[in-house]
């Protein structure tokens, strides 16, 4: 199980990297942490002619915070992000999702940007990014810099809105409203495995009422989708418990989960309902602790 042959470059500047990527005409790939790409190479499921590693390019890793939220360099490892107290404080949902990613020895190399760009439908970070309203900064020689909202980014399994010559350089995570609580929950066959079903949920609370809610699920379709109150067609005035039950049923009715070795489609559908309810309930409870209960 050895990797197929490919060429390798580790340029010193982003411009040089972008030039290589463009010249590769779709046959070149960015090597970030490699925790998904290298297994695919080992199984000979991917055959890039050139791997471009940006580890020598300054400024692509690191967490920054300003009044509007977090800016996370695309090459920030999942471990660094998880351990950064600003991530935990400013984006508890992202923190919670990071803890479900693989194992520590995977997160020590795997990057936040790499996970989003890999767009595995069962991965945790894409679902979290959707619920958080994250935005990805993409750079290319041809188009310069553009910002892609997470909800426009994931197009299908392992497929994103990135053009072949584009690189994600940064992920912006806006600060959540103070009355928002969140929760990431998943059930996998073993701890550390990809989710059979994962649910990222955020609830904006006003007293005993739900003012808004957002959801995204991993493992239940070709890509994670953002599900809002409107998209779930939830009635407005019900008690939170009734609403969460409705949301669970609505999610279950809307998804077309895959069937595989680990779970049937029926199981994933069932679990989606159960976890949606559990995640929303937990998010609602947490919102109270963050002051949401007082702001009614």
């Amino acid at each position: 199980m050895k990797l197929p042959p490919f060429a390798y470059r580790a340029p010193e500047s982003l411009e040089e990297g972008l030039e290589l990527l463009a010249a590769g005409e779709g046959e070149a790939r960015i090597l970030a942490g490699g925790q998904s790409l290298i297994p695919m190479l080992a199984l000979r499921l991917a055959r890039p002619s050139l791997l471009i590693e940006l580890r020598r390019v300054p400024g692509l890793a690191g967490v920054h915070e300003d009044g509007s939220g977090l800016r996370i360099g695309a090459l920030t490892t999942e471990l660094v992000a998880e351990r950064d107290p600003r991530v935990r404080a400013a984006s508890p949902l992202l923190f919670e999702a990071l803890e479900f990613v693989g194992h520590p020895a995977i997160r020590s190399r795997g990057t936040v940007g790499g996970s989003l760009c890999h767009a595995d439908p069962a991965a945790e970070l894409p679902a979290a990014a959707l619920v958080l309203g994250a935005e990805l900064t993409a750079r290319s020689l041809a188009r310069g810099t553009r910002t892609i909202p997470a909800r426009d980014f994931f197009l299908g399994p392992y497929t994103t809105a990135l053009e072949f010559d584009e690189v994600v350089t940064e992920v912006r995570v806006p600060a959540p409203p103070s009355s928002q609580g969140s929760c990431y929950l998943e059930v996998s066959r073993r701890p550390g495995d990809f989710a059979m079903v994962g649910v990222a949920a955020a609830v904006v609370r006003g007293g005993d009422r739900v003012l808004d809610l957002r959801l995204a699920l991993s493992g239940v379709g070709d890509r994670p989708r953002l599900l809002t109150r409107d998209e779930l067609e939830l009635e407005g005035q019900d008690s939170p418990e009734v609403l969460f039950g409705q949301a669970g049923r609505s999610v279950a009715a809307r998804i077309r989960p895959p069937e595989d070795l680990h779970a049937s489609a029926a199981y994933r559908r069932h679990l989606s309902r159960v976890l949606t309810e559990r995640a929303l309930r937990t998010a609602f409870e947490r919102a109270a602790l963050q002051g949401g209960a007082a702001s009614a």
Binding site: V187, R189, H262, A263, S264, A266, Y267, R269, H270
Partner: peptide
């Protein structure tokens, strides 16, 4: 008896 099978056995899923 993986989780999906357990739910079939108790009739929660078909």
């Amino acid at each position: 008896l993986p989780p999906a099978r357990i739910l079939e056995l108790i009739g929660a899923t078909s």
